[in-house]
């Protein structure tokens, strides 16, 4: 449908007899990140797990750059809500883990620069448990960017951090997107987060099984705002998304 993009066509998924997703269709153009916004239990994580190749859709197809997804390992740039750092490896070794045993010098240099980009240049030998929650999340972002140079999936990545850390991480996300553009999806239940961080917001219908409801394209003017600034446009689109979330079908 579009080159380099990430497309889902009529994707449905069931846990046994319980249908969770029904005919989900969307196509994220190359270089864009779309937000999946929905209430708790609407299948955001299931959808991301399916796109990551962890679940096989019961019907429909997922294509990455025009080719069928073909299971896990195709999209490796994934950030989870829960902690996923390997506690027995240092920050740098966590970064290099997805790569081969002897990664080329260029990739090592890239790992170093990504650690610097997320403000962890002094922590390359530090073990994950010696990092704060916010720093661990930064490390996960850096690791995901190194693991996959094209695609990114983020499953409520800011769900476990406090409000101020979340704001710092939003800034980091925006900066990283400028420096390291990726194509992908971010799930969240927070309309403001979705609007500030993504190009398009897809609302998941709360009626079970879930499907994509309305799509909101975020105006450029909203992306010009810093994470502390507000505007009428921002308020308006947030309000519209909230109203869409409240719709039952």
């Amino acid at each position: 449908m579009n080159s380099g993009g990430l497309c889902l066509e009529d994707v449905s998924f069931s846990y046994g007899t319980q249908a969770v997703l029904q005919s989900v269709t969307l196509c994220v153009p190359k270089g864009e990140i779309w937000a999946l916004v929905g209430r708790s239990g609407t299948g955001k994580t299931t959808l991301l797990n399916t796109v990551a190749g962890l679940f096989t859709p019961s019907s429909g197809k997922i294509t990455v750059a025009g080719r069928p997804l073909g299971g896990a390992g195709r999209i490796r740039g994934v950030v989870f809500q829960e902690d996923s750092l390997l506690g027995w490896l240092s920050a740098m070794d966590n970064m290099l883990f997805p790569l081969d045993h002897n990664p080329p010098a260029a990739l090592r240099a890239k790992a170093e620069s990504l650690l610097s980009a997320v403000g962890l240049e002094g922590a390359r030998r530090t073990m994950p448990q010696e990092l704060s929650t916010g720093m661990r999340k930064r490390l996960e972002f850096a690791r995901a960017l190194l693991a996959d140079q094209e695609y990114m999936l983020a499953d409520e990545p800011f769900g476990t951090v406090d409000a101020l850390t979340r704001r710092d991480l939003w800034e980091l996300w925006i900066d990283l997107r400028k420096a390291e553009p990726r194509t992908g999806l971010l799930s969240t239940h927070d309309p403001e987060e979705a609007v500030r961080l993504c190009d398009v917001v897809a609302v998941l219908r709360s009626a079970a099984p879930s499907s994509i409801g309305r799509l909101f394209t975020v105006p450029d003017a909203v992306h010009q705002l810093s994470v502390t600034e507000h505007s009428e446009e921002l308020s308006k689109i947030k309000e519209d998304i909230l109203n869409a979330l409240a719709e039952r079908s």
């Binding site: 190749g53 962890l54 490796r76 994934v78 829960e82 996923s84």
Partner: peptide
């Protein structure tokens, strides 16, 4: 084994 750690290993397609 923590779910996040397991999911990360699976996502990599190891």
């Amino acid at each position: 084994v923590p779910a996040g750690v397991l999911r990360w290993g699976l996502v990599l397609g190891l």
